[in-house]
């Protein structure tokens, strides 16, 4: 008769957390940040069809990094929860906080009860009436929730990406500049300096001024145009030091410190 080895709860939780972190670190990063018209989502994603960023409900969107099959399940669950709730009550009664709580409880349970934690990190963001009422929640693999202000990065090198994003972040920047800041940040992944272009970016916005459903993907010619505009405003170099733009007009926002 064999006896199972005793593993202390501390050790077991630590092992699971290390496992999840390693899994998440293998994937590319994603960033979420406010801009003057709402909330911008940018993910480093080669695929046109396997999305990391999706619509959950009228004002609420979802972004994730990590294992696709696991966060896809979460996304589907969120869509069904939001649609059922909105149908049972009213469309206005579906909130980002509600969805963030459901995700936190779900991930928390999986983390503590199953042997294999889910290797995902997700964001639920809700665009409000004005910039101050926007909500951005980060939910990690163990079910903890953080109410983030203004910007966040998640994925393998979240710290490096966050630092790079903070250099350029401005809540009141137009979309092209916010996108340029996001691309600048994502280029700092894994200590490498990569040149990102429209082909490996997944971009979407929650647009405050839009009617009914605020979520919109930005792709194709529109994305290329926005990237060009962003380059024009902040200079072609990805280095922050050379950010003194030759660009025109409203790029004065560049000087504003976050």
């Amino acid at each position: 008769m064999t006896m199972p080895f005793y593993v202390s709860p501390e050790q077991s939780m630590k092992d699971k957390a290390d496992y999840a972190r390693k899994g998440i670190a293998r994937g590319r990063s994603a960033v979420v940040l406010q801009y003057d018209g709402g909330i911008l989502f940018v993910a480093d994603n080669m695929s046109r069809t396997l999305h990391k960023i999706s619509e959950l409900y009228d004002r609420v969107a979802f972004a994730a990094v990590g294992r696709y099959n696991e966060f896809e399940n979460l996304r589907l669950g969120g869509v069904r929860y939001a649609d059922s709730h909105g149908y049972a009550y009213d469309r206005r009664d579906v909130t980002g906080r509600m969805l963030a709580n459901a995700y936190a409880q779900t991930l928390g349970t999986v983390f503590s009860e199953s042997n294999k934690p889910w290797e995902v990190e997700i964001v639920v963001a809700e665009v409000g009436e004005d910039a101050d009422s926007d909500q951005i929640y980060r939910i990690t693999f163990d079910g903890s929730v953080v109410d983030e202000k203004g910007l966040l990065a998640m994925g393998g090198s979240a710290d490096a990406v966050t630092t790079a994003l903070k250099e350029r972040f401005d809540r009141d920047a137009p979309l092209s500049e916010a996108l340029s800041a996001a691309m600048h940040a994502l280029a700092h992944e894994n200590g490498e300096r990569r040149e990102l272009d429209a082909a490996n970016l997944e971009v979407a916005v929650l647009e405050r001024a839009r009617e009914h459903r605020k979520f919109r993907r930005i792709q194709g010619a529109r994305l290329t145009r926005l990237i060009e505009q962003g380059r024009g405003a902040s200079g072609p170099s990805s280095s922050a030091a050379s950010g003194a733009a030759e660009g025109s007009g409203d790029s004065g926002a560049e000087d504003a410190d976050s």
Partner: peptide
Amino acid sequence: FEGGRLPAMYM
């Protein structure tokens, strides 16, 4: 929902 989490049926 039990424990506030999304039921398996949802996912």
